[in-house]
Design a protein around this nucleic acid. Structure first.
Lengths: 235, 235
DNA sequence: ACGAATCTGGACGATCTATTCCGGATATAC
DNA sequence: GTATATCCGGAATAGATCGTCCAGATTCGT
């Protein structure tokens, strides 16, 4: 039976309902998430909300009821993929060769960006409203930091590499993908290979200093909100 | 006089007349270009056309009359900057140290992207309609190819570097800038430094093969047209 | 100075997207 | 089976932007 007082907590802090959804509502929620995944992956994060509702076979109102903002829908749709990202990190840590683990992880994440137009950009944003999503991102990040530590300890990763460099790489790769996904898919592989070589301890020459962690985090805050349209009339 | 050349034509024919413009019309044209430069630089290529007209102090109709499509306006506004790009290449060729010239050019172009939100994206597009613009792009590209040849001959640039890698780099840097321009400007410097190290002959390890020139060109064809909205309704 | 060619600005209609509203349908508790 | 809280879908509203049209102003040749 449905608990009406218990901490249902399916999504831990889902902004919307506290008690369990009615069966049909939950079904539609799943359909919406599935539809959003497909459509975002194929056409990016800027598709009209209505198209997603149609693709899910429900009305727009239903979508808005469950996901009041576009950010909510994006976070909901990509929670699983972000978790997969974190898992990939854990998996890379299992590699006995620290450098191979590090490189493999970079390649894996870049590949995930290439496979999903939407995810490519999601990785360069934050969704403070979705705790679960952010928790997964954090898990992924912690795993990555450990990968970095190991690879540096092994003397294969340059010592001036910092965690923020991953965010920078993901933004760059998103740019490569945006420009080449249609006409020259696969270009991202070459790009990733170049970057990995730059990260190698071998080539290490001095670099401009990286942005402070807090600063880079603020950059990620490109969350869907101010991102849409900020432009105020000028003149 | 700005332009009086050209046999009418051009098929769909630039609505732009081929004989010299009337004095007031030419004045407004210049104002529009100046306004477009400022607004594009500050807010990117997607600003409403009307804002540019307002900023120039003219009506929208005037803008449309002179630049029938957004692409025409963009090409017109950035012709000068593209020429500056080509000049930078020529300047870099004057450097007695081939590798320093190559690196300096990369940094210079990346800096130009960082300085101008609009230009960052312009560099990843083509405007077949604007012959002058494309001629400047070609001049820049030819200069770059020569820089590459010299740097490779000097043994400092990896031999598997190809011209298309520049386009790839510019797309990547555009992504970095899009993500960091507001909160962490300057990140692009670190990115550019990483890339330059990856291009160095020192670190050279095998790379995935690059896209064919024609393929990469097609990728650049992200021209303002299909770029705006292609999405047809599905389902 | 004068007329014809050219140019101008703002209003207008069309399109697209976001978001809300509400009568009717459905699931669930008893 | 029925009452009712919940949910649904499509219509309607609202706002933004595009691109065109035209009555009137401006420039240029003579």
């Amino acid at each position: 039976m449905a608990q009406k007082a218990g901490p249902a907590e399916t999504g831990a802090g889902r902004a919307v309902p506290c008690r369990a959804l009615r069966a049909d509502a939950e079904r539609n929620r799943q359909r919406l998430i599935a539809a959003a995944r497909e459509v975002f992956a194929e056409r990016g994060l800027d598709v009209p909300i209505e198209d997603i509702a149609r693709h899910a076979g429900v009305g727009v109102a239903t979508l808005y009821r469950r996901f009041p903002t576009r950010g909510d829908l994006i976070a909901g749709a990509f929670e699983a993929k972000m978790a997969a990202c974190a898992d990939a990190g854990a998996c890379a840590l299992a590699d006995p060769d620290p450098w191979a683990g590090f490189c493999g992880y970079i390649e894996r994440v870049c590949a995930m960006q290439a496979e999903d137009r939407g995810f490519a950009n999601v990785l360069t944003m934050t969704f403070p409203a979705d705790k679960h999503f952010e928790a997964e991102r954090d898990r992924a990040y912690q795993g990555f930091i450990e990968l970095v530590r190991r690879a540096q300890a092994a003397g294969r990763l340059r010592t001036d590499f910092v965690g923020e460099d991953l965010a920078m790489l993901l933004m760059a790769n998103a740019g490569v993908i945006a420009g080449t996904a249609d006409a020259a898919p696969g270009t991202w592989r070459r790009f990733a290979a170049y970057m990995i070589q730059a990260f190698s301890a071998d080539a290490a020459a001095p670099l401009p200093s990286p942005p402070a962690p807090a600063v880079m985090y603020r950059a990620l805050l490109h969350l869907y909100q101010a991102g849409t349209r900020d432009q105020r009339r000028s003149d």
